[in-house]
Write a protein that binds this DNA or RNA. Structure first.
Lengths: 160, 160
DNA sequence: TATTGTTATACTCTATAACTATA
DNA sequence: TATAGTTATAGAGTATAACAATA
């Protein structure tokens, strides 16, 4: 159930019933969503740790599928570019990624996975995308429906 | 799209197609889910700020619907009990909540909203549950379907 | 003059451990 | 001996601002 508790009986005056019911559905969704988000985060933390990586570092490895400027990786991770430096430093120390100069713009550093990094990426994909909490318990059809609904919600502009 | 990119053409050997397609759906869902979670967080931060509250403090107000021990509030907020002290201190300074002794167990502090706290709670419900990003753009039927799917996913035990 | 990556720093969030008062 | 709440503190995560190199 959501934060807003459902009334015990029917609406006394019979007017606010619709609005209350609608608010209840929204409240329920937000609540389960938050619950699942917590589990999903834990899933990523625990499974990334199996490879000796933080969840953030693992996410970075998953997102390096072609030569990528630092800023672009920051955008994909949804964080500030200043954070990427330390992430890439750690991946470099682990022998998973390296910095290469951009051929045309010398301000840009392009990030590339090493061979070991590519192996790690495949392993992470298999392990992290194996029945994560948002999807576990849903068959393929249900997953497709869920994806469609979430995409529709995401297509609604943030400031609407 | 998800982290794992969909292949351009059909599967060459015709064997891994199913598994790859399934992984793609999961990857997509996890991605949109994360995107929506970010927007939802922002929604709560911004709208709570309209009332001079942090998102956490607002969530606490929303969850005080009857006399509640500190630990119970911590459980509802999904945080450690040690955090609740400062939250309640702030709500108290704002005149929104007060601590009352439990009638039978003197170790327990029960949290109760003041009249102003109850007004704030109603205002927060109206404002925070008004078309949050997870739900915006979905009609009532779609919202019900989404709730059902998320509940099914949440019903699947975390360690499964 | 604007932009990339880096660095130093500060701020927020959250958990752990030690303490007290009760049970 | 165990539990509720408090306190101090430390760690992770993230953002801001200033800087050097390059455009």
């Amino acid at each position: 159930m959501g934060v807003v508790q459902a009334a015990a009986g029917p609406d006394p005056d019979g007017r606010s019933g619709d609005a209350a019911a609608r608010q209840q559905v929204v409240s329920d969704i937000v609540d389960v969503f938050a619950e699942l988000n917590g589990r999903l985060r834990q899933h990523y933390v625990e499974r990334s740790a199996e490879f000796g990586l933080s969840a953030t570092d693992a996410a970075a490895v998953q997102r390096l599928r072609e030569p990528t400027p630092m800023r672009a990786l920051a955008a994909r991770l949804g964080c500030d570019p200043s954070n990427v430096t330390s992430i890439v430093d750690r991946l470099h120390r682990r022998g998973l990624a390296r910095r290469t100069p951009d051929p045309v713009d010398r301000r840009i550093t392009r990030l590339v996975l090493t061979t070991e990094g590519e192996r790690m990426q495949a392993a992470l994909d298999a392990r992290l995308l194996d029945a994560p909490p948002v999807v576990a318990g849903l068959d393929l059809d249900q997953q497709r429906t869920l994806r469609e609904l979430l995409r529709t919600a995401a297509a609604s502009p943030p400031g609407a």
